[in-house]
Write a protein that binds this DNA or RNA. Structure first.
Lengths: 107, 107
DNA sequence: TTATCTTTGGACAAAATATGTCCTGAATGG
DNA sequence: CCATTCAGGACATATTTTGTCCAAAGATAA
C-alpha cells in the first residue's frame, strides 16, 4: 500500500489515496465510474465496495489489487467482531476451523 | 459445549448434540420449530441459523447460548477466509483494526 | 455576502443474497 | 414390502445491500 499507513480502515486508506493524489470525490468517482456520493460513503465505511470496484480503485491508484482486497476482507471481519461484540478469541477459533475444514475437504 | 469436541464446524457440533441425545432430525426440528430439511442443511453447513434459532437450539440442548453464538461466528469467519481464499494473516490485521476502530469510537 | 465547489447524509428503488418449505429419491431397518 | 430417516434440488418469500438522486451543510475565494 505504498504511502498508506497501516491498520486504519479500508475507507480511510482510500481517502488517503485520494487526498495524496490531490483529487476530489467527484474526480475520482468519475474515473472509477460511480456516484460521488457512493465513493464518499465507502470512504466513511458506510458502504462496502464490490470486488469489481476494488479492482477499479486499485487500477486507478496503481496499488496492488490483492492487497487492497485483503484490506477490505480484514475490515469486514473487524466490523463483524465489533457489530457482534464478539470476543477476539473467536479469531483464534476461526483459524483452527479453517485448518480443520481444509482437512475435511482433502478427503 | 460440554461433551462436544472442539474446532469442528457449527453444523457438526449441532449434529453431535442431536446424536448424543439420540434424536432424529424430525424430532429436534419439531422442538425448535423448523422444517427438518432446514435443520439437516444447518447440520451440513448449507444454511446458517438465525440468532433466534441459535437461542432455541441452546435452550433445547441446554448449552450456553453465548458459546454457541461464538461457535457460529467463528464458523462464519472461517468460511469467509476459505471462500475468498484469503491468507490467514488477515485475521491478525483484523484484530489490529478492531483495536484501532475502538480507539476511533472513544473520541 | 454571494457564488461556487465539495462533502455529508437521508430516502428509496433496484439488485443481490439468504432463508425456509416442499417435494422427490436414496438408504436403512424392521 | 412398508415405514422412516436423511440428502438435496427447486423455488417463493424475506431480508439485506447497493447505488442514485437530491437537498443541505461546510469550505473557499472573490
Amino acid at each position: 500500500m505504498a504511502t498508506v499507513k497501516k491498520h486504519t480502515t479500508f475507507g480511510e486508506q482510500l481517502r488517503q489515496l485520494r487526498e495524496t493524489a490531490g483529487m476530489t470525490l467527484r474526480e475520482v468517482a468519475a474515473n472509477i465510474e460511480i456516484d460521488p456520493s457512493l465513493l464518499a460513503k465507502i470512504e466513511r465505511n458506510q458502504r462496502q465496495p464490490t470486488k469489481h470496484l476494488i479492482k477499479n480503485i486499485a487500477d486507478f491508484f496503481s496499488v496492488n489489487e490483492k492487497e487492497l482486497l485483503e484490506e477490505f476482507l480484514s475490515d469486514q471481519i473487524a466490523y463483524k467482531i465489533l457489530d457482534e461484540k464478539a470476543d477476539l478469541n473467536i479469531l483464534k477459533v476461526a483459524e483452527e476451523k479453517v485448518a480443520y475444514i481444509k482437512t475435511l475437504r482433502n478427503e
